[in-house]
């Protein structure tokens, strides 16, 4: 699943009894459903394994705008960087498919070229953050097999195994039992724990529980990325034509 989307679509409602992992995840998806969304985000990425004190050269800050349209598994999204000046205009178009890996195109205004991101490149880190391109993909709840691995601190620990090709062997989803929001994701690859994602600062926005802050740790490189979301809006009148390669080139 698109972790960013998951974060923003996290919501909670009611209490579930006797649900299996798949049913829980369908409920999470249902509560997070929107026709479209838009947010502005700020990203803090610490590229040093030793940590990043304030004003450290290794602490990189970036801002972007993300817009998304469509249903889960079939959605389209554009992530466009707005700052700093050196990266302004760089954009990524993601077209998700329910039964195949997403198509992704990168637009670099200074080079004047769009470039398709190959399937082989999905495990590459997303521009120095601790996300990979695969993490930006959105996957329907049906594209995982789930097993409830236990319950603790009011959360379900669900073992999710991807049905499609993935850089991960499996992930543990920690879902809040009260509001069906993601609290934490732990993803494993062949070498072991690769990435952890923690969701905090939840806020109800237009009826949807939304995490305002997310912390991602690359456990292998021991680097950290922190994100903060501002101006989150759901169900905006966004047009399908704005999510094409042509639009990627034009709209800066």
């Amino acid at each position: 699943m698109n972790k960013i989307a998951i974060i923003l679509l996290a919501a909670a409602a009611g209490v579930a009894w006797g649900q299996d992992g798949h049913q829980i995840m369908l409920e999470v998806q249902k509560r997070q459903h929107t026709n479209s969304m838009r947010y502005e985000g700020t990203l803090y990425s610490c590229t040093s394994p030793k940590g990043c004190p304030a004003n450290s050269k290794a602490l990189v800050t970036k801002r972007w705008v993300y817009e998304r349209i469509g249903d889960f598994g079939k959605s389209k999204g554009i992530l466009r960087f707005t700052g700093p000046a050196e990266v302004k205009g760089v954009a990524l178009l993601i077209v998700n498919h329910p039964d195949a890996a997403s198509d992704q195109w990168l637009w670099r205004p200074a080079v004047g070229r769009e470039q398709k991101v190959a399937v082989q490149d999905r495990s590459t880190r997303f521009f120095g953050t601790d996300f990979t391109f695969e993490d930006l993909e959105e996957r329907d709840a049906d594209q995982y097999t789930y097993t409830i691995d236990g319950e603790m601190n009011g959360q379900w620990k669900i073992d999710a195994k991807p049905k499609k090709a993935s850089g991960y062997t499996h992930c543990y989803f920690y879902i809040d039992k009260t509001n069906y929001t993601f609290q934490r994701i732990e993803c494993y690859n062949k070498k072991g724990l690769a990435r952890t994602i923690d969701y905090t600062d939840f806020e109800m926005i237009q009826g949807i529980w939304t995490a305002r802050s997310v912390g991602v740790i690359d456990t292998i490189r021991k680097t950290r990325t922190a994100m903060h979301y501002d101006k989150v809006d759901y169900n905006l009148p966004l047009k399908d034509e704005a999510f094409t390669v042509e639009a990627l080139r034009i709209a800066e």
Binding site: K62, E86, V87, G128
Partner: peptide, 17 residues
Amino acid sequence: ENSEDGIDDPLVFLAQP
């Protein structure tokens, strides 16, 4: 990637020709 003076910013690297 694991060196402190390795690369400045991957996104800037890619964005600037």
